[in-house]
Design a protein around this nucleic acid. Sequence first.
DNA 1: ACCTGACCTCGTCT
DNA 2: AAGACGAGGTCAG
Length: 287
Amino acid sequence: MKQLVSNLTKNFQVDLDASINSGQVFLWKKINSKWYGIDGENVLVLEKNSKFDQSEKTLFNFFRLDDDFKKISYELKKDKIVRKAIELNPNLRLLRQNPFQCYISFIVSSNSNISNIQMSLHKLCKKFGKKVIIDGFDLFLFPKPNVIAKASITEIQKCGLGYRSKSVKSASLSVMNGEIDFEHLKKLDYYNAKRELTKISGIGNKVADCIMLFSLEKLEAFPLDRWMLRILQKYYTKEFKISTKTITEKTHENLHDRIVQHFGCQAGYAQQFLFKMERELHKKKWL
DNA sequence: ACCTGACCTCGTCT
DNA sequence: AAGACGAGGTCAG
């Protein structure tokens, strides 16, 4: 196992810019060609083509080097559009995030946009997270559940979360009282994990899928946001025939089943490549 | 079951 | 310059 880890990190082939800039993570900053990222209580510092400061195990996990990407990519490329999307960003990777941070981040993301999400989460860290100094920079770790849970809604609101503040606090309380247990959710199957997550105020289908895909090992999760629906309408009219902008609960479940049938049980990977491709078409700069 | 509108906040466009 | 619009949704009615 240790040997395997060494081999994989030695051949570390991840496009950091593409992966970080693909809507998965929000607390990364590039300073002097070095990336600094907050993942829960860890700070990841990454520089292209250089030795990494982190333990190999941390990197191995975060970049999902345990996935057999060659095999996954081979399977995904059976779909022509996904093939093209992978060719455009061959070293884009799914990231395995700290579950609590991911959970709060996507509750904050709803009906918002990237820059607002980044700003809100940064403020949340600055206000409630522990400060660490790395390379002379002040960085703030993601707050622990108990800190947000006991904060007042007014205090949380000062981070610019608006009406989401209430959900962020109660979602943190749910973690504290054990109603949400990430390790347990990892063990559940997709549908049961989703049922548990959507009980939480502020978590609907899309947010639940993001949390499951990015932090709970549910690779069949396929977040259906406006962009994805547009993509399905644009490239997959025959396969999925999406008509409306918003989809109903029933349609959603049915659509997800067909998506997994079409893209396979690693559909979440396909989603990430498709999403990245389409966003780049629109030449949006995120960072 | 499906449909509609309101919702914090911030940047952009008129 | 002030007001409308919409942004990686969710929820109530």
